[in-house]
Amino acid sequence: MDGPFLIALGLIASGDPALTDIIALSLKVTLTAVSIGCLIGLPLGAGLALAQFPCRGAIVVAFNALMGLPPVVAGLLVYLMLSRSGPLGDLALLFTPTAMVIAQAILILPIVISLTRSVVEDLWAEYREQLRSLGAGRLRAVPTLLWDGRVSLVTGILAGFGRASAEVGAVLIVGGNIAGHTRTMTTAITLETSRGSLGLAVALGIILLLITLSLNAAAWGLAQSARGRLG
């Protein structure tokens, strides 16, 4: 058995189309889920930071706890919703990339919401009087605070990306790991492990790690330069 690193290098060098398809699908699913998570989570998190209503504390605690939602449970819930015998069965979404996006978005959402809430809450304490003085009400403050908190928010969004891209339980259940259709990096690793092709599995893991690493490095560099430029 060749070393996993050699296999990984060989795979990358060969540019195997099956592998590039899997990588492309993984990135597509996760990036889409992260985008949806941000579109919903950023305004919701900021709203939660600024809003005052009864049970607010309970909701904050609930979203914090949901960050630890086991992916398999999220996957199972989405499966039961999307199954033909479930309430959304007519959409025929089970075993499709869209189903995987939904499951991952559910995993990412609590992370984005909780992080946004904490970042925006801190900023709000600092900005509150100034924004009010300049004529911004609570609603108008939301985009301002999100934009001024952008460097910290990127860190949290990356954490969400990390959770989604490393996740296998949920996408396996709702995607079905169908070759050429819903097979992602993580489900491919699971499959190769179950076939006893441990070298290939580790090689795929190395590639996944490299992708995550480069995305994180890029975002970190971006955040560093932004910190330097924006103070």
Binding site: L131, L134, G135, L230
Partner: peptide, 20 residues
């Protein structure tokens, strides 16, 4: 302790005018 926003000087001046 005035809070200046994390953006350019120009954008800081523009912000309250846009609000108005």
């Amino acid at each position: 302790r005035p809070v200046v926003l994390r953006r350019s000087v120009r954008a800081n001046l523009d912000y309250p005018l846009a609000l108005a």
